[in-house]
């Protein structure tokens, strides 16, 4: 019989991390939880509200429509950016001087701060002075994103595609260049056509990279705030009021901290659940 020496001193070494995590995640999160189950009128006076705020939020028409808009936005953005990014990656050169040119050009949008992107597109799309607006109107199409919901959506989606397709493309490109030449050679020998090469070699080899791309783009687009806030401010009307924008309006505009806290937690749970769902679905056949 041998008994292992118990030495718990190592916990002290982990303590700094615990403290860090506590301050940047647990404390804020618990504050939100705290607000979500209480009612306050300031002066640090709280009364117990139970699940009242949660019920309120879950039954609110306003939350439903914001959630729907948010889902629709993420859906559209993923449906465009993932195939487009993959397509761009497939056409990018694999060697030669153009590789670095492409990589730098592709990275540029990713380096621009969110609010600058919003401002850029705001100026581009302004009906009276914007280049984009002038061109579209010049084509005979009536376009004014400050008044037409469809035009506002079009502009926001276009902005997001411009800003983030590069990320998908760069991820896919990294995945593509890591496929050994022998696969392509074997495919040639086996008489595989371009489509078969894509379907049976490139796509399976890109699976992990694509999963990451989908997850990143989903989470980011589902939480989008700054760009939309700068570009449309959630308008016209509430046409582009996504969950994040609505949340800020409730929390900081109306100062309804209880409902805002409840909404934050529900929002968080939705993201967590959907990310898990995507991951599980995409990794389903990973029983190698």
């Amino acid at each position: 019989m041998s008994s292992k020496t118990q030495n718990n001193k190592a916990w002290w070494l982990v303590a700094p991390v615990f403290i860090m995590v506590a301050f940047n995640a647990l404390v804020p999160l618990m504050t939100v939880v705290n607000y979500s189950v209480q009612e306050t009128f300031g002066d640090n006076v709280f009364t117990w509200a139970g699940v009242h705020w949660f019920q309120d939020v879950l039954h609110s028409e306003r939350f439903h429509s914001a959630l729907l808009r948010q889902l629709l936005f993420s859906g559209i953005v993923l449906a465009i950016e993932i195939p487009l990014g993959l397509g761009v990656a497939l056409t990018m050169p694999r060697k030669g001087p153009w590789v670095s040119v492409c990589l730098v050009l592709m990275s540029l949008p990713l380096l621009i701060p969110w609010n600058v992107v919003g401002s850029m597109w705001n100026i581009m799309a302004l009906p009276d002075i914007g280049l984009l607006a002038k061109v579209i109107n010049g084509l005979g199409i009536d376009y004014n994103y400050t008044r037409q919901p469809v035009a506002a959506w079009f502009t926001i989606v276009l902005m997001d595609v411009w800003h983030w397709t590069s990320l998908v493309a760069l991820l896919c490109y990294a995945g593509l260049v890591s496929i050994p030449d022998a696969y392509y050679q074997a495919a040639k020998v086996d008489g595989a056509k371009t489509w078969a090469v894509f379907r049976f070699i490139q796509l399976p080899k890109l699976k992990h990279v694509l999963t990451i791309a989908v997850l990143l783009r989903f989470m980011d687009s589902f939480m989008i705030y700054t760009e939309v806030s700068v570009l449309t401010g959630g308008g016209p009307g509430s046409a582009t009021t996504f969950l994040s924008i609505d949340l800020v309006k409730i929390a900081l505009g109306q100062f309804d901290l209880g409902p805002a806290a409840a909404m934050s937690l529900i929002y968080f749970m939705i993201i967590l659940f959907l990310s898990w769902l995507f991951y599980t679905l995409m990794m389903k056949n990973e029983d190698a």
Binding site: A182, Y183, Q185, A186, V189, F200, I201, P204, K205
Partner: peptide
Amino acid sequence: IAQVFQFPVIYDTM
């Protein structure tokens, strides 16, 4: 012709 490479090339998903 047919060719067998240094590292086994198989179609993973099949």
